[in-house]
């Protein structure tokens, strides 16, 4: 036995190694099942799947890509959070700092932004695929609803993040997007029947969103907290439900 083989054996048979990795890569049916069921991440899957389910043509990989894009934005977003201060004085300067002085600042910002856009596109395509394969039909009706909530949350995540660079593009896009809120019937001051409910510019649906009558520093802080804490948290909870349901209901497919 060569020195290399000997060392390898010593390592893989040591107590430390065996306490971490419970089993090797033996290609036996039992071990194949172990690979999935014994791993906390992989066991999101069942240990056996039907043949059609692993084809690209069936899933388009789009649910998985949506999730991957979410993970990418989490990783890059944490990096950005180290250097970004959500106040009107600093936010824009910090963007410049990221771009010109921070090692890989621009790269991380680009990854974060493009992944966010890709996530929006992927989630639409995912929904379209689920529609085309009729995978919302019983017993998966409720998971479709969870999916629609995830779709809305994805858009909100993207929208709240749009404001944070605090440049002309971001405040005006968010202003235009949020102006809808002031037209809400009953609850918005420009909406129908506002005089009945007493909605006014500093006390209506849009002011609630903005944290005041106009877009301003208070809005920045509000959107920052929604973007970095609240919506990711809620979206993660719904994703947990989404994945759990897929496991419980089984993956859709043609009748056997």
């Amino acid at each position: 036995m060569s020195k290399w083989e000997e060392t390898k054996r010593q390592i893989t048979e040591s107590q430390v190694w065996q306490s971490i990795f419970r089993h090797g890569y033996d290609d036996t049916p039992g071990n194949r099942v172990q690979m999935v069921s014994g791993n906390v991440w992989l066991h999101l899957h069942p240990s056996k799947v039907r043949r059609h389910a692993i084809r690209m043509r069936f899933t388009w990989c789009m649910g998985g890509i949506t999730f991957l894009m979410f993970l990418v934005t989490v990783v890059t977003g944490i990096y950005l959070m180290f250097y970004y201060r959500p106040t009107a004085e600093y936010a824009y300067a910090d963007m410049k700092y990221l771009e010109f002085d921070m090692p890989f600042g621009m790269f991380m910002r680009n990854m974060h932004r493009w992944a966010a856009h890709a996530m929006v596109i992927a989630v639409w395509l995912h929904m379209f695929r689920v529609f085309l394969t009729g995978s919302y039909k019983p017993p998966r009706e409720f998971n479709w609803i969870v999916g629609v909530l995830l779709l809305v949350l994805t858009l909100l995540l993207s929208f709240t993040g749009y404001l944070l660079p605090w440049d002309q593009l971001s405040i005006w896009a968010v202003t235009v997007g949020s102006n809808m809120a002031r037209a809400t019937p009953l609850l918005g001051y420009e909406g129908p029947f506002a005089d009945w409910t007493g909605a006014n510019p500093i006390y209506d649906a849009r002011a609630f969103l903005f944290g005041g009558g106009e877009i301003g520093p208070h809005t920045l802080l509000r959107f920052y907290i929604l973007h970095c804490i609240f919506i990711p948290l809620v979206a993660s909870l719904f994703m947990a439900v989404h994945f759990w349901r897929i496991r419980r209901d089984g993956f859709s497919g043609p009748p056997v």
């Binding site: 999935v36 992989l42 069942p46 240990s47 056996k48 799947v49 990989c61 998985g64």
Partner: peptide
């Protein structure tokens, strides 16, 4: 028509 998730599905997910 079932096959094992590992390696078949895991492999294509990671490659994707």
């Amino acid at each position: 028509d079932k096959v094992h998730t590992w390696p078949h599905l895991v492999r294509s997910e990671f490659l994707c």
